[in-house]
Design a binder for these strands. Sequence first.
DNA 1: TCTAGCCTGTAGTAAGCACTACAGGATTCA
DNA 2: TGAATCCTGTAGTGCTTACTACAGGCTAGA
Lengths: 216, 216
Amino acid sequence: MAPKTERRAQHSEESRRRILQAAAEIAAERGYDGTSVALVTKRSGLPASSVYWHFGSKDELLAEVVEHSYREWLPALNRWTPPEPGIDRVAYLRSALQDAGKSFADQPEFMRLGLMLLLERRVEEPAARARFKRIRTEMLDSMSAWWGAVLPDDAVAARPDLPRSLAQLNMAAADGLYAMAMSGSDAVEISRLQDLLALALDAAAERITRELTGGS
Amino acid sequence: MAPKTERRAQHSEESRRRILQAAAEIAAERGYDGTSVALVTKRSGLPASSVYWHFGSKDELLAEVVEHSYREWLPALNRWTPPEPGIDRVAYLRSALQDAGKSFADQPEFMRLGLMLLLERRVEEPAARARFKRIRTEMLDSMSAWWGAVLPDDAVAARPDLPRSLAQLNMAAADGLYAMAMSGSDAVEISRLQDLLALALDAAAERITRELTGGS
DNA sequence: TCTAGCCTGTAGTAAGCACTACAGGATTCA
DNA sequence: TGAATCCTGTAGTGCTTACTACAGGCTAGA
């Protein structure tokens, strides 16, 4: 998308954004098959020909939805960059999980659509699903690095896979809590469960560390 | 469904079962909207008129799929009936989670379809989603009772919501691990993460118990 | 004002969707 | 043998689906 002199470019970009936004909302409500181009045109106000001019196909549109909503949501991931040493691990975990929960509440499209795509298993994998899997790997890498930085060095040396395992459990549990929140129970409960998850992860890390280094 | 003299009843029941089986497989692969009656007739070998004679509508068919596959999967839930006191909690947790994981691997339809339905949020809720939510509540009750029996009495007295909270986290994390397993990584990893989850839950329960009763 | 290129609006396409009407085969009880 | 009941097979219904052909409006550079 070259500049092409401002005003036109702005108009084009605005249309693209409106279509993406509408598609994201519908896809988060109804999944891959439930998202029809007709619904997208109705909610965005732009005709089907515009959708196909901008995105080429429904499959590519949904893949772009995943990509776009991920980039909008990205700031929430920065929490998982390794912090300075000597930090209060459980407190940091708690606030990071709370932040993640809040960011899901603000922009529910990304995670909901992504998890729905993850659970599907048709013969021809939609492009959106492949895109989400790749993004997921990046997220896991960030969280693994964080756990690696937050665990004692000798524990990591004794079990190099530990940071990644904790990160995987961390991510899976956060996903599960998100799905639970979707099922209709109140959001207050979820916030308390996120604290409990932080506590459980911290306690697990502590026990494993003690067994590895403390001996007995 | 009255007896109606054996042979006919058997034949009818067999058709019903074949339709349910086909629908369960397709729904687990493609979700609610992705499951078409035409696909079900193709995989089951029975015509659409039979599907509608037995189930009345696609919505009711999928609700019955949830109900049916839940009843087939039910034995795996018996693990969460309260055990005799003095049991090794973490070992029991580990084996229970491993069993649950294995039962998902054997009959993946129930959980996969259920979680997909949970994440959807259309205006008109499908009957299958409501059905799964009710089943989910039952499962949570079982797990809450288990945690209530396995925690020290004085801890439960001090925090009556603790068993339920641990059960919720337990369930959410198990769901998340299941979704992670679906994303294509190898199953061996998942088994190790289930052990880690058992350890984390046990460590959390232990720390909370110590803080509540041990003091300091 | 002319021309080129970007984007939209209209009006389709064939295929797929959930669902139905209805005739008729199979099985049972008389 | 006959009638009643249960289930299946055929052939549709009107509607929605993803996608397209194409004319024309609007902006930009000349």
